[in-house]
Simulated assay, not measured.
Amino acid sequence: MYAVIFRAKPGIQDSEYGRTVTRMRELAFEKYGCLDFISATEGEGEQEVTISYWPNAQAISAWKSDAEHTLAQETGRAKWYDSYIVQVVEIKREYKFNS
């Protein structure tokens, strides 16, 4: 299993941003096999962190090159984010606790 960690400093996040985030999430699950997708904002919107989980590296590559996702990335760089970093990691081990 793999994870993609997206950490960003938000810029202008308008209503188009909200619609695009919803669509990208749907696309990731429905077309590319995303296993989970978690987002959080920290410090009154100063940092956004999104972690998505994927079955393999090929699914991540296909997702990254999707035409809709590519357009969202371009708009993100132009308007929605001041900066961001993307990290792709392979999960070697996982531990759980359930009470």
Rank of each mutant, 00 (worst) to 15 (best):
D14Y: 10
Q58L: 11
G11K: 03
E46I: 00
E48A: 15
A62L: 14
E30H: 11
R93F: 02
A8K: 07
A59F: 01
I60M: 06
T70E: 10
S83N: 13
A8D: 02
Y32Q: 07
Y53H: 10
D66M: 08
A57R: 10
R19N: 14
S83Q: 13
T70G: 00
S15Q: 14
L27N: 11
F97D: 00
E74N: 13
R23W: 05
S65D: 13
E42C: 08
S39C: 06
F97R: 09
A78S: 12
K79P: 02
A59T: 05
E30D: 13
T50H: 04
M1T: 10
R93P: 00
F29T: 06
A3P: 00
I5L: 15
R25H: 13
P55C: 06
Y84S: 12
G43L: 12
W54A: 03
I85A: 12
R93G: 03
A40T: 13
Y53W: 08
Y32W: 07
M1S: 11
Y32M: 07
D66F: 08
E30K: 14
A78I: 02
L35W: 01
E74F: 03
Y53Q: 06
S83C: 05
K96F: 12
Y32P: 05
D14E: 08
G45I: 07
K92Q: 11
S52E: 09
Y17H: 08
E48R: 12
C34R: 01
G43S: 10
Y2S: 01
E90S: 11
V86R: 14
G33W: 04
W80T: 04
E42K: 13
E46G: 15
D66I: 08
E42P: 00
A40Y: 07
V89K: 10
Q73Y: 01
Y32C: 08
I5A: 05
E16R: 10
E46S: 14
A67P: 15
G33R: 04
V49H: 02
P55R: 10
D14R: 09
T20G: 04
M24Y: 04
G76F: 03
E46W: 01
M1N: 05
A62V: 01
T70Q: 11
K92T: 08
L35P: 03
D36R: 10
A57S: 04
V89E: 04
E94M: 03
E16Q: 15
G45T: 09
D82P: 00
V86F: 04
M24E: 06
A28T: 08
G76T: 10
S99E: 08
R93M: 06
A8R: 06
M24G: 05
S61T: 13
E26L: 05
I60H: 01
Q13L: 06
V4P: 00
E16S: 11
T75F: 03
K79I: 12
K31A: 11
E44A: 14
D82A: 14
F29G: 08
D36H: 05
S83L: 03
S99I: 04
E48C: 07
F37V: 05
I12N: 09
M24F: 03
K79H: 05
I85T: 14
A28Q: 09
I51C: 02
S65V: 05
R23T: 13
S61K: 13
V49D: 00
S83E: 13
S65A: 14
T41L: 10
N98Y: 04
R19A: 15
L35H: 02
V4D: 00
V88D: 02
E46N: 14
A28G: 11
T70S: 14
